[in-house]
Design a protein around this nucleic acid. Structure first.
Lengths: 352, 352
DNA sequence: CTTAGCACTCTAACTGATAGAGTGCCAATC
DNA sequence: GATTGGCACTCTATCAGTTAGAGTGCTAAG
């Protein structure tokens, strides 16, 4: 393999044109078509030679002997990374989107949901928004409510607005007064501190108290310990809208494939894992086809961008659609939606 | 129209055979096929005459001139109401299902979800379970947590286990002590009584108190009033599983139809309304095809049965699938699942 | 390096022929 | 009068054969 084909300007331009054509029509594009529209006037024959090179590099593909060429995953990748120019949206459009998103009503969840719907509607594909990771969880208030014999309902208010409920079973019965006392103790002592701080503080308390052999105190502390464990791990979830847009896109007409995709949407677990990987990326990130290594997404691409709360990226939003999608448009929409969502959440945070 | 064709025994048997054949093969069934298997030995010609009668009555249908007959919605209806014999499941099967359902772990929601999954798995179609209507909602505990200036988090525990959160805005600022006092007052006075009782009692209190012109008390009561409104209307929802089973059923291969169906699943509102209608029915109820008057369900049937908590039917479960489904089997499964679910919920209730 | 030309391949679409299934109707039969 | 056998007719699915079009690969010439 001494022959290492160069990717000169011309080849790249041709690849770009090919991808753009294919994205528009969904048909394999032949040399004649490319010869016609390119600013560089070349004969079909020349183009065929270039195509042969591109095919050798694995950037394009022929479905059969005499059909035009189709970009491969690598072809899309090169196109997106080096050839694609994304136009910013007009100010008018941006502010229209902002209005939709920030329509003042609603909880944080409602805003996230609107973002997902907006993406789905704009792109006519599936929109997805992960729920924000609560990086710092501050204890606002804790309350114990006795249910039956040894069951106690723990109500945990964090970050001034999020409420968690948890039923715990205790070794012995606690009186209402005891519970009240325990809650008062914890509230007075730990309000405003982060949950992890509280957890370790309570643990220390446990050791200190053990020395003093105060049985009641020890009970309370060990109960609190139970209450604080695993409170954060609940909501690893996402909001998916417009999945049905994916039906009826000719690219995903394969029923079995579509079914696998929808089952994956229901499972959630693997997809959320994939989305989490996008959290650390700076801006828009794209998985093309099989790149994700996640089988149900074969034939699909995922375009994501993280959104922030404060200065910290806490969640990811994006669009799922067929590999043959209008990346230029989708990237622009995903990008601007992420920014608008960050803005909306932060302003919402300041004036609750 | 003086000719009113009789539906004699023979015609009914033939209809029954026809429906059963069609359910199995999905192919229009012709006179010869019917002539072969029927216990009553008739020639195809005779059967053709009967078929002509059935067609005139709108019970069967020919897709085109020379194809066999297919049952219409009315045909299915007659079949289900008068001709179908449902075998009870074997004890072994029932107890196997019971084990799956009652696998001791989990909240009530988890049990409902397992029921839905069980239905989906058994029938290979979509299973649906509505969340129970809380007919009687008893106050177990109420708590007020001050958030910021005039925002108060109300935590309402009902029926010993269900927790509702609600943020209310108040006219003036309340101190933590005041809130504590208010909660104590309400808990002491109203625990164990139904929410609607509490609501009206509080209202009376409001009037009585107004005469005594005790401002603080009045504030508390009016706040409680706010807290108790609209607490019940939240969860009209259902658990749907196995929707993806519907893809790939040849009967629903039509993309646009399938898409409408899935969109309806997402909307939830109309479907829940339809399901609510089944709540009052005694046992298994069936909507065939367009009977529901609900367009996205065209071509689908809905088989439901209510389930009970105590002696009161509080929810509905069922199966959604193509009109051409094995009703005998599905009805048996839906029926037994409803009974098992009722049993599981009630035993769960008694030994929490 | 580029281009024109040519042979070749593959697909999509149309055609016609055929077999099979099923009906409707009529006349014969029980 | 109900039932049946026979026959003509209709509709569908399928297969093979044909054609047109698009596109490629290769080669030789500019």
């Amino acid at each position: 393999m001494n022959k290492q084909p160069e990717l000169n300007e011309r080849s790249l331009t041709l690849l770009k044109n090919l991808v753009e054509h294919y994205i528009q029509d969904g048909q394999p594009v032949g040399s004649r078509t490319l010869a016609k529209d390119a600013a560089l006037s070349l004969s079909p024959a020349t183009i065929r030679n270039v195509m042969a090179d591109l095919e050798e590099l694995g950037l394009v593909n022929s479905p059969h002997t005499s059909a035009g060429r189709v970009p491969t995953a690598s072809g899309y990748r090169l196109f997106i990374d080096s050839l694609l120019t994304v136009d910013a949206l007009t100010d008018v459009e941006v502010s229209r989107l902002q209005e939709t998103l920030a329509a003042d009503t609603g909880s944080r969840q409602a805003v996230l949901n609107r973002a997902s719907q907006m993406l789905a509607e704009l792109t006519r594909m599936a929109g997805v928004v992960t729920l924000p990771k609560r990086e710092r969880v501050d204890l606002s208030h804790i309350e114990f409510v006795p249910l039956s014999e040894q069951r106690i309902l723990v109500i945990l208010v964090t970050n001034e607005q999020e409420v968690h409920n948890k039923i715990i079973h205790t070794a012995r019965r606690f009186s209402a007064a005891e519970l009240q006392q325990a809650a008062n103790f914890l509230n007075a002592r730990y309000t405003g501190r982060s949950l992890s701080e509280v957890r370790s503080a309570v643990l220390q308390e446990l050791q200190k108290t053990r020395e003093q052999v105060n049985q009641q105190m020890l009970d309370v502390v060990s109960m609190a310990q139970t209450a604080f464990t695993d409170t954060e791990t609940d909501e690893d979830d996402y909001l998916l809208t417009g999945e049905t847009n994916l039906m009826g896109l000719s690219d995903l007409a394969d029923m079995t494939q579509l079914r696998a995709l929808f089952e994956a949407f229901n499972q959630k677990r693997t997809l959320i894992h994939l989305l989490d990987q996008c959290l650390t990326a700076r801006g828009v990130q794209i998985f093309i086809g099989e790149e994700s290594g996640y089988h149900p997404l074969d034939g699909c691409s995922l375009v994501t961008a993280p959104y922030a709360l404060g200065n910290q990226a806490v969640g990811v939003l994006g669009v799922i659609g067929p590999t043959r999608m209008d990346y230029r448009q989708v990237i622009a929409y995903v990008d601007v939606t992420a920014k608008l969502l960050s803005a909306a959440l932060n302003s919402h945070e300041q004036t609750p």
